[in-house]
């Protein structure tokens, strides 16, 4: 299952500056493993203690995965996964 993953500025150091990379998997967790294989270091920026880091938002197509099963969110061929840092503070 090939998906396109959109990478935010702050994580492009892991992708050699690429804004968008290919990955594979049928769940978000598998997609992240696939990203980690090709672009070491990405996983720890996204996942902490088995769940998505609270500082990042991840979308499959238009849906925030927090409302679609988190790391277990289903991903199908041709989907776009978008990673965006949360814009938040105190």
């Amino acid at each position: 299952m090939a998906v396109t993953v959109s990478i935010p500025t702050i994580l492009r150091t892991h992708t050699g500056g690429e804004k968008s990379v290919e990955a594979s998997g049928s769940t978000l967790a598998e997609v992240i493993e696939s990203l980690e294989n090709d672009h070491g270091g990405l996983k720890s920026r996204l996942v902490k203690e088995g769940t998505l880091h609270r500082f990042v938002n991840v979308y499959v197509n238009d849906e925030d995965v927090r409302f679609a099963g988190g790391l277990e969110a289903k991903v199908t061929d041709g989907d776009t996964v978008t990673i965006l840092p949360a814009v938040a503070g105190g």
Binding site: N57, D62, D64, R66, T82, A86, V87, A88, G89, G90
Partner: peptide
């Protein structure tokens, strides 16, 4: 009054 956060759907639309 002590926290702010862009709504996640708004954030995606913005970017």
């Amino acid at each position: 009054p002590t926290f702010y956060e862009f709504d996640s759907a708004d954030l995606l639309k913005l970017y």
